[in-house]
Amino acid sequence: MRQRKFQMIEFFLKIVTIAALIVGLWVIPALAETMYVKSAKTKMTAEPSARSKSLGYLSAGQAVKVIAKEGRFIKVSVGGKKGYIFKFKLTSKAPSGGGGGGGLDLLSGNQKMAAAESSSGSSIRGLSPISENYARGHGISAADISAVKKMESLSFSSSQIDAFQEQGGIGPYAK
């Protein structure tokens, strides 16, 4: 009687194990979560600190594999390298053009880019020709056209933005 009871329990456990195994195998590949870099020139560091050694910069839309979450940083793997990225520079939403990208861009800290470029992957361009035409047809003064062009052309280096954030203890430097 006791032997039969054991056999039944054993059979039940086998069924449950097989079912759990099937569910597990289906879900396990998703454990390696993928995230995407939000904007251009996103710094990856060796440690979960913005002051640690820079490993390079990532392009907007670059896919990274999440290894672990540590405070305001996420440990990631990209292009065979492991490092840390400020967590609000990553998103779980894939870019509309598809993820991927070229891995780490090893840039010098002082490389110039537009103010816009410093936080985006978009190219630097002046006022749209359509907006220029609009200005001509609507009595917009040369001073106002120049003002829009000026705001579009304001430029910073990545190190200037980094220094501004470090001085204020904000962004990746926030405690």
């Binding site: 251009a40 103010a115 630097i124 003002a147 200037q160 962004g171």
Partner: peptide
């Protein structure tokens, strides 16, 4: 103003476009 703005825009939900401040 642009430095503060770019810092904020960089963590926004649409950080992949250029932002201009005046």
């Amino acid at each position: 103003i642009a430095l503060v703005g770019l810092t904020v825009a960089g963590v926004s939900d649409r950080a992949d476009i250029p932002y201009h401040f005046a």
